[in-house]
């Protein structure tokens, strides 16, 4: 299945980093997210887009994971030439990821 079937997401920038909050639509899916959506899987998903490290933080109280992707915005801030200079749509890009249910 794709993440978009069981999760929603929100992303935004901090300098050249982007953070993506990934939220289980139903709390019962949080364990699946925690198991499948590792920092390594996310780094692989964004290979060539995120050029730095990916860190994952868990928020079981909100049924959510937070990912910080470094060097992901082509310089970031006002200098970035990207159409999505602030990574606002990168949460949606994460939702395209396929996972094993």
């Amino acid at each position: 299945m794709r993440l978009i079937d069981i999760a929603h997401a929100k992303s935004g920038d901090k300098g050249d980093s982007v953070n993506i909050g990934l939220i289980a639509r139903d709390r019962s899916h949080y364990a699946l997210l925690e198991r499948e959506v590792t920092a390594d899987r996310v780094a692989e998903h964004f290979a060539g887009i995120c050029l730095g490290e990916v860190r994952r933080y868990e928020l079981p109280n909100l049924g959510a994971l937070n990912f910080v992707l470094e060097s992901a915005l082509g310089g970031g801030g006002t200098a970035s030439l990207r159409v999505d200079a602030q990574g606002k749509a990168m949460g949606e890009a994460l939702l395209l990821m396929e996972i094993d249910a």
Partner: peptide, 29 residues
Amino acid sequence: ATVTEQLLYEIGDPTAYLSPDVTADFTSI
């Protein structure tokens, strides 16, 4: 769901949201 999306917006380590006033822990709420 709307509040959770905003909570996760533009944050780093959720256990240490830094401000001049306090270090807030988003995993406690």
